[in-house]
């Protein structure tokens, strides 16, 4: 897996006096979480393959503040947001792509009124754009005929009405896409949102991720595809709770695509 990735920081672009096509917003999970880092790497492999001139902020990037906002800490959110906006505006960033629907949502919808207006895309939307433009083509048949079910992340789906892009690019892997009974608008949350990722759930009779994984397992899948690092963790834990980790894997859309190059 340690194929050399080409990743340039915004600082380096600036030093060369150049502007990248897009800024890849890696997000905290994508930077630090062991599982999510693999998603960042898969996405970069795709970007490298398509020869996209992209930048990252690297050590200059900081939490979007999204999770603080959902937890109710508007102060911390706005502090983070304004710091990030100052940085992004300083670099004159126009287009941002991220693998994290939470960053996607907050930068796209909540940054503008604080002074940060950008075109923000979820990585599945950008990958679709690359494929449609003929810059990226998938030739591998790794997933041909495999049963793949896509779990809609709340902050991509209901929150922003993006349902088609992930399905569209998944179809390019020649996988056999199967839908869960509750999908798109009616998809059940994985249980991570609203800062739940960082705390124990309240008392109940089941964990939400176990319930959602049950939905997924009912489709008899080989792979559960996600488009969010937090959903990924939740579904992976859910698979373990159902003792299905030997037969079912949880992969991000970017990973499925990167393995189909």
């Amino acid at each position: 897996m340690s194929e050399q990735l080409k990743v340039k920081t915004m600082e380096a672009f600036l030093a060369e006096g150049k502007q990248p096509e897009i800024l890849f917003w890696v997000g905290s999970a994508g930077s630090y979480d062991d599982r999510a880092k693999k998603i960042s790497r898969a996405f970069v492999r795709l970007l490298n393959k398509a020869e996209v001139d992209f930048a990252v902020l690297g050590p200059e990037e900081s939490s979007t503040g999204d999770v603080a906002k959902r937890a109710g800490n508007e102060f911390l959110f706005q502090m983070q947001a304004m710091m990030n906006i100052e940085l992004l505006n300083g670099y004159e960033i126009k287009r941002i792509v991220t693998c994290d629907p939470h960053s996607f949502n907050t930068i796209k919808n909540e940054y503008p009124s604080l002074g940060g207006t950008y075109e923000v895309l979820h990585h599945t939307q950008y990958l679709k754009e690359l494929i449609d433009a003929g810059r990226l083509s998938l030739t591998g048949n790794e997933y041909k005929g495999k049963r793949v079910t896509f779990h809609d992340p709340c902050y991509l789906g209901r929150a922003n009405n993006v349902y088609e892009a992930p399905r569209n690019v998944l179809a390019k892997t020649n996988a056999n896409l199967v839908e869960m009974k509750r999908n798109k608008q009616t998809a059940l949350c994985c249980g991570a949102g609203g800062a739940q990722m960082f705390k124990e759930p309240e008392k109940g009779d089941m964990d939400i991720n176990v319930l959602r994984t049950k939905d997924a397992l009912e489709t008899n899948p080989d792979i559960i595809a996600t488009g969010c690092p937090y959903c990924n963790t939740m579904m992976t834990d859910g698979i373990k709770a159902h003792e299905k980790e030997d037969s079912v894997t949880v992969l991000d859309v970017a990973e499925l695509l990167a393995n189909s190059l």
Partner: peptide
Amino acid sequence: MMSNIENNGAPWPYNQMDRLNWVNE
């Protein structure tokens, strides 16, 4: 989680300078 964000810009206690380490792992 929130004091982590305040101190090092991420919900986990990692150093902000290590944000790009994933590239070479």
